[in-house]
């Protein structure tokens, strides 16, 4: 009997089980973030005065972080390509580059939040700021989780092991990028 995980060896519904599981994670995350963003949108539409509070968010910081995430998605998909070609060490290097993007994103977000809190805009300041910190915080938690998992995958990939996982973490990472693509205009542009 093989000691390899079922997710690696069994194919269900026309795709490896592990990949199927990642897609189910993505779908459940769509519902989580979708509910949160839909709630924000309906409140934002009902309260035009939120625009004045949104004016205090820094568009340039948001744009920079968008650029960081888009670039990290590029390195993630290039890692998948390298893994597909059987080049584990190259895939690992690209995954570490993606992790660097995640660290940059979270660091910038940390400085951004520290500045906003210093100005008195905290999670209890108003409903807008409650949504702002909840949505951006939940997203940042996903970035941190993704980076940790990516590190584990990168360590194995460097030894040419479990290369299929490079694609799996990639799908998750691109979804995290997708969420930010919508958070950016909602929180930083619609003022």
């Amino acid at each position: 009997m093989s000691d390899r995980p079922i997710a690696t060896t069994r194919s269900a519904a026309g795709m490896p089980t592990g990949k199927l599981a990642v897609w189910w994670v993505v779908v459940s995350e769509i519902v989580i973030f979708g509910g949160l963003l839909a709630s924000y949108i309906m409140h934002r539409l009902a309260h035009s005065d939120w625009g004045e509070q949104a004016a205090h968010t820094n568009t340039w910081i948001g744009a920079f972080n968008t650029l960081v995430l888009l670039s990290s998605s590029l390195s993630a998909v290039l890692a998948h390509k390298a893994a597909s070609e059987g080049n584990g060490p190259k895939a690992a290097k690209l995954l570490w580059l993606t992790i660097l993007g995640a660290v940059t994103f979270v660091t910038v977000k940390g400085f951004e939040w520290a500045h906003e809190i210093e100005l008195g805009y905290t999670i209890t300041s108003s409903t807008f700021w409650s949504f702002y910190y909840t949505a951006a915080g939940l997203h940042a938690a996903h970035v941190i989780a993704g980076a940790i998992i990516m590190g584990i995958v990168a360590v194995a990939a460097a030894k040419n092991r479990e290369l299929h996982r490079v694609e799996l973490i990639g799908i998750y990472w691109h979804f995290v990028d997708l969420v930010w693509i919508f958070l950016f205009p909602l929180l930083y542009i619609a003022k």
Partner: peptide, 15 residues
């Protein structure tokens, strides 16, 4: 496989 698109669309419809 096509069902992946379907489950993604279903989640968006729920939203």
């Amino acid at each position: 496989p096509r069902f992946v698109g379907y489950i993604v669309m279903t989640s968006l419809v729920f939203m």
